[in-house]
Design a protein around this nucleic acid. Sequence first.
RNA 1: GGCCCCAUGGUCAAGCGGUUAAGACGGCGCCCUCUCAAGGCGCAAUCAGGAGUUCGAUUCUCCUUGGGGUCACCA
Length: 490
Amino acid sequence: MSNTIRTRFAPSPTGFMHVGNLRTALYEYLTAKHEGGTFVLRIEDTDQERYVEGATDVIYNTLKTAGLIHDEGPDLGGDYGPYVQSERVGTYLPFAKKLVEEGKAYYCFCTKERLEALREAQGNAISGYDRHCRDLSKEEVDKLLAAGTPYVIRQKMPLEGESTYHDLVYGDITVPNEDMDDQILIKADGFPTYNFANVIDDHLMGITHVVRGSEYLSSTPKYNKLYEAFGWEIPSYIHLPLIMGKSVDENGNETVSKLSKRHGSTGFMDLINDGYLPEAIINYIALLGWAPTDNQEIFSMEELIKAFDPKGISKSPSVFDYDKLEWMNGEYIKKMDSENFLKNAKPYYEKHNVSSDCYEMLEELLKPRITRFTQIDEKLEFMDSLANYEASLFEHKKSKSTIETSLASLEAAIAMLEEVEPSAWNKDNLGSIMTTLASQMEVKNSVIMWPVRIAAAGVPVTPGGCSEVLVLLGKDESLRRMRIGLDKLK
RNA sequence: GGCCCCAUGGUCAAGCGGUUAAGACGGCGCCCUCUCAAGGCGCAAUCAGGAGUUCGAUUCUCCUUGGGGUCACCA
């Protein structure tokens, strides 16, 4: 069991789960589950100033509805707890002090004001901290410490040479050592920085594969210096290409940039509220930056776990395409079983007073016509009330319908339909009545169907054909509307 | 600006020295059809540019260009 893969999702509780974060979580989950490994949830809340009420609930809810079930975490416990960094504050400082003792880190007493001035003086040629306190004498340090001077602890970085590490996606990455800042390990408030806590916790929690966005690609050597300083084994790295959004700049040119709120709904919950299904979102983002060895596009979570392979992760950033998500969502709706479909559609049925006798038929009609359940609303709008349409709506070239033919058709149809028993008011029967009428009148079916449908619906586009619309409206309402149509034609 | 990474149609992408350069979304057209969809068939559209290496480069190397990331007491 000691060589079991362990990955972690380590979000900070900001109250917002971006799809980029979610995809990272997905790949972390898949990386672990593909090998039967363990997926850990850790909350990184070392920034006290950014605390957001209820933000951890957003994380739990998102993971749960997305189907990314963690094996260890604040809510579940585990052998490596606690899983919230603010509850681990005590564990970091000793590690930092150990490095200080070994001469691998040092106390820094520089004020924020000094650092700010430094940055300003550097201007464009940003070169980081000037290592002002790096070589303070033991006496000076003790004196300042005794005086209660606020301090941070910084890590000593090598001044020359270069560092290389291997990434499973990007290959070997080499960075000049002189570019590595003497990063802060412990902040003045005693809390560890993200970088420090991250490394300590990943090690203590036995994380074997660090999966994260490619924005960490160039800072990873700094993390490795920490592992080296402690003599710990460096984990395997899987850096993920960024997700981009398309937008139009002030000059009207289309540009792409890192996905953010200005690209629309980019939060997982935003997408859910817009009517996208969790499974479809997961499926779509799984394919954003990763491709299977075959051409499969629709994946269940189980299939993803089976097929996932870091080798299929691409290196270049990918643009979030709402059109394709839309299509994929539609595919999921089409495949949905009746029970689930009804559960999602029922609120809209009720809003438009659809008879429960029509639920089954409506499912068939709606499935190929919607890509999101929210669209049902407008599809059923014609049922609420009859629109005040123009008689010209009856003219339709392709259906060979004119005002004259429509008048005749409607008159005949009304006469026929009035005789239909309410119990026989169903799709099949109404359909055969229409076609029979058409052959009696020696006209194409459409010459009957078109005007009847238009008169009943009052709008040119309906989710379904003539007989379906009649069934949806019921006998009385259908005939009422048809007579109104007849009047318009006279 | 320094450093790092990336580069196949509009988008997601397969490819891994020799291919008519897959497939999907979107677009367009046709068929089906009482509308709109769905479905079926088809079309257009890609190797950023330039040097090498090689018998042969989309595939390997370098340069250019373009794009992205990163340089916090944020995570």
